[in-house]
Design a protein around this nucleic acid. Structure first.
Length: 176
DNA sequence: AGACTGATTGGCT
DNA sequence: GCCAATCAGTCTT
């Protein structure tokens, strides 16, 4: 069975974050370092959607940090949390609507802080364009059937009100 | 200018 | 289960 990979383009990323959240697990995050390609299966993501989402950084509107979330989908949002961990997010959706997907797990690495450390992701990746970058992008493995996705509430957002805390916007690849 | 907080992790009780 | 590490971003004064 022939199998080839396709780099995800603009059309994929500009859809709504909740649609992409169901499609991203099972896809392949590719990191190029010194000409060497490293591929990781995406297994766990969390969606943050709009200024109305009280769990999202964009709940306080457009700030220097959240500016990239308002960009059209297809670029990265990378920020430091707890003074020590970089978080890797994919900006999605149309321009002007702040959305992002936190990459929470890869097939070989569990935990959003551990995976950025393993891949060498830092502040310099903020606003990186996934459709043109030579050092990071995402591929679809053609001919591969997506696995089963389960949903859970998002992690680490107790400060958000009940409505937003309980939304099942974490999407996990079963057997991932 | 100062205070508070957090989309985490690992170590200890 | 609890808690320290550690600091940029954001809010308050």
């Amino acid at each position: 069975m022939s199998r080839s990979n396709t780099i995800l383009n603009h059309d994929f990323y500009r859809k709504d974050v909740l649609e992409i959240a169901r499609e991203l697990p099972g896809k392949c995050l590719v990191r190029q370092v010194d000409g060497q390609l490293c591929r990781y299966g995406i297994t766990d993501v969390e969606a943050y959607r709009g200024e109305e989402d009280q769990a999202s950084h964009a709940r306080r509107g457009r700030t220097p940090r959240t500016r990239v979330m308002y960009h059209e989908g297809g670029i990265l949002y990378v920020y430091l949390v707890y003074g020590m961990h970089w978080m890797l997010n994919i900006v999605t959706g149309p321009q002007g609507h702040p959305q992002a997907l936190l990459i929470r797990g890869l097939s070989t690495i569990q935990g959003p802080g551990r995976l950025t450390k393993a891949l060498g992701i830092d502040r310099s990746f903020n606003a990186e364009d996934l459709t043109h970058s030579q050092r990071i992008w995402i591929e679809e493995v053609n001919g591969e059937s997506p696995g089963q996705i389960i949903t859970r509430p998002r992690v680490g957002i107790d400060y958000a009100g009940k409505e937003w805390r309980e939304k099942p916007w974490r999407f996990i690849l079963k057997n991932g």
